[in-house]
Structures are given as C-alpha cells and as structure tokens.
C-alpha cells in the first residue's frame, strides 16, 4: 500500500494557537518568550501571578537551560506564548528608550527564598536614577549577617532590570558586582543618568 503516504502538514500555526490558549486558560503554569533589548536577549517567563523570571540568555547558557531550570523549580507545564508577555515587552522597550522610569508589572516571587525576597523588595524600592549600597539594602531587609548574604541574594535576582539590582553599589562607592555582568550594570545606570565616578 504505497498509496498510504503521510499527509502533508505544517502544525506551526496550530501549535502556536494551542500554546497561546493554554497560557490564557492557565492550563500552562508558565508562559515564556524571548525579548531583544539593548542589554541583550532576555528570556522572559510569566505565571498567572506575574513575571517570574527575566534571564540574560548568554549568561544562563541558552534559552533551553533557562527553561529546564524553570521546569525543575516551578513546573514542566511551560509553553512559548509571546502574547502573554506583551506588557513586559512593551515596558522593557519603553525603559530602554528612556520613556519609562518605573515598571508596573506584577511580580511572582516564587523563585526567591523568603530572605532574598526581602532583599529584592527593598531593592525594588530604590527609585529610578538613584543608587543604594549593599549595606543599606541589608539593613532594609533586616539581614542580621550584613552585606554578604545580601550580595548573594542580589546576585541571584531572578528578575533583573525590573527588580533593579543594578542600582545597588559597593559600600565604598565602587560599582560592585552584577548578575548580568558589569558592562550591563554600566549600561543600565547610564540609561538612568547615574554618573559613575
């Protein structure tokens, strides 16, 4: 029966429609997309609660590595659904274009430990264009052990840029470290008009 040949199909449109619907209905726990920015390609992931991850693609290996980590830590029900991240994409575009100072995106803190969450929430309160220090953030987060655990919590910030860990500087006035590499920290502070000594 050589006549029984596989039908010719292209499932791309149907697959994208499925992913969009699954993200919309909440059957998928995580929707993701890749966003191009002047700071590089970002893997953005969203749960029904809000933005849960913004990963610099190059520093995390690849899109696949980021997704594998999300599958392990959150849920394997992950689909590519760019429309679910339209708000995040738009706000990031505006930020990099100098037209946005604050992000209005809901945040899902699931990937932060309770301590890291306090650190990151204190960080989120630093206004656009201003900076703080590890010591100040440690104090604001009520860290009994001082600046080092705070630095670690900032270094593993799951949502850089939106949670502005780039605004935290070394206590002596130096640039300090950055989860996305120092050149990105300089780029982001430059966008915000922060003058670096």
């Amino acid at each position: 029966m050589t006549e029984l040949r596989p039908p010719v199909v292209d499932a791309a449109v149907l697959a994208a429609r499925f992913a969009a619907r699954a993200a919309e209905s909440g059957d998928a726990d995580v929707a993701y997309t890749v966003i191009d920015t002047p700071a590089g390609r970002l893997v953005a992931a969203q749960t029904p609660a809000g933005l849960v991850r913004l990963a610099y693609e190059d520093l995390n290996g690849s899109v696949d590595r980021v997704l594998e980590s999300l599958a392990r830590r959150l849920s394997p029900r992950i689909v590519e659904a760019p429309a679910r991240l339209d708000d995040a994409r738009r706000e990031l575009d505006e930020y990099f274009a100098g037209r946005r100072r604050d992000f209005d995106l809901p945040i899902d803190w699931s990937l932060a430990t309770p301590f890291a969450r306090r650190v990151l929430q204190a960080t989120a309160a630093i206004p656009f264009g201003e900076t703080s220090t590890y010591a100040q953030i440690a104090a604001a987060a009520g860290s009994p052990k001082g600046a080092r655990p705070t630095g670690n919590a900032l270094g593993s910030n799951p949502i850089p840029i939106v949670v502005p860990c780039h605004r935290v500087m070394a206590t002596g006035g130096g640039l300090g470290g950055y989860t996305g590499g120092l050149s990105r920290k300089q780029l982001l502070l430059g966008i915000e008009g922060v003058r670096l000594g």
């Binding site: 499925f18 997704l67 394997p76 689909v79």
Partner: peptide
Amino acid sequence: PHDPFQRVLD
C-alpha cells in the same frame, strides 16, 4: 526532571 512541555510540542 521533565522537559519543558514546549519541547514535547515542538
């Protein structure tokens, strides 16, 4: 762990 479901779809 499980692969992300998107990989199964793709």
